[in-house]
Structures are given as structure tokens and as C-alpha cells.
Simulated assay, not measured.
Amino acid sequence: MPEWPPTGRDALLARAREYARTVDIDVDPDALSWEVSERAKRRAGACRYDPATGEVTIRLARRAADAFSWNEFARVVRHELVHAWEYREFGEAGHGPRFRAQADRLDVTTTCPTFAAARLRLRCTDPACDWRADRHRAAATVTEPERRRCGRCGSRYEVEHVASGETWRTAAGYRGARERIEEW
């Protein structure tokens, strides 16, 4: 077994493409474009489709390769190959029933694992509910939590900035936290 993680982007792409050739899915890995992202901080892989040209590109995160074992990274490659198959066959891709059927067959989940610690955590305020969700960005679920509800019981939730422990339940609370937290 070759060294993992490989050094250099060419070696990483070669390893991913070589592995992709062994995956039992109707996609020619050599007909895809392959890229390495040196900037990605959360997403281990992505699959892009250009409907004008039909080109499908799989982008793999260097940081994910460095953080994951080969088996974990191979799952990312399989996950993105399912998206590539969907784009090639149907001109669209998602995580619906068609994706799930292929993902189950290839032993991958509908989401790629993260390789970075979450910066923010949503937590239900109902003591009887243990719902939590991690977030990396300050999207509306973080900036306007009063407009959303717990994913399990429908109660309100609070947002925690993990590093500082600061919490809020409203847009005003978010704005105040942003002003107080130096290392966002």
C-alpha cells in the first residue's frame, strides 16, 4: 500500500483516480476532471457540474487527506463518484433516494465527514431534548436563531460559540457576541 497521505497534489490526485477506477460505479474516472483544494477548511470533497460543457469535476481537500486515514478518504472519493454518476446520468445531483441507493451500495454516507472542529453549536433549550447540531459558518441558523426551531422537538434552541462558550438565542444576541468575541 502506498504511503498515506501522499505528498504533493499530483500524488494525491493520482491515488484518488487510481482508487476510483476500482469502484463499482458506471463512471469513467479518466473522463472526469480532478482537483485538489488547498483552501478548503470543512468540506472534504465536492463534485461540480458544468451543464454547458457536461464537464464533471471532483475536488478533494488537501487538509482532509492529511486528517483522514486512507479508508476515510476513500469513502470521500466514493461519495463524490456517486455525485459524478448522477451528473453524468441525470444532469443533476443531490442526496435524495437515487443518491442514497448508490451510497448504500458503495458503503458511504450521504454526508462527507468533516475534518475541522465546528466553530458553532446549536443546542435545544428543552431539557428533555438532547438535539444538537454543529455549524462552521454564521448562516441564518446562527445569526437569527429565533426564526428557527429545534430539529427534533420544535423548541427554541441556543447557539454556542464553542471556543469562547458565549451563547445567544436572538439576532441581537448574535450581534453582541460578535462584538465581544475577539477570535471568531
Rank of each mutant, 00 (worst) to 15 (best):
A46I: 02
D50E: 15
D50H: 13
A52M: 06
T53A: 07
T53V: 06
G54E: 02
G54N: 02
E55W: 00
E55Q: 09
E55G: 02
T57S: 08
I58T: 01
L60G: 01
R63N: 09
R63W: 00
A65F: 08
D66A: 08
A67P: 02
F68M: 03
S69Y: 04
S69H: 03
E72F: 00
E72Y: 01
F73V: 03
F73I: 02
A74S: 14
A74E: 12
A74Q: 10
R75L: 01
R75V: 01
R78G: 04
E80Y: 10
V82Y: 14
V82E: 09
H83W: 13
A84F: 07
A84M: 05
W85V: 05
W85P: 08
E86N: 01
Y87R: 04
Y87P: 11
R88G: 09
R88F: 00
R88I: 00
E89A: 05
F90L: 03
G91Q: 06
A93I: 01
A93Q: 02
A93H: 03
H95T: 10
G96N: 15
G96R: 13
P97W: 12
F99W: 07
R100P: 06
A101H: 12
A101R: 15
A103D: 12
L106N: 14
T109Y: 03
T110C: 07
T110K: 14
T111Q: 14
T111N: 13
P113H: 08
P113Q: 07
T114L: 01
T114S: 15
A117Y: 06
L120K: 08
L120V: 09
L122E: 05
L122R: 13
T125A: 03
T125L: 13
A128V: 12
D130W: 01
R132P: 00
R132V: 13
H136L: 01
A138N: 09
A139H: 10
A140K: 15
A140I: 04
V142R: 13
E144P: 00
E144V: 07
P145I: 06
E146N: 12
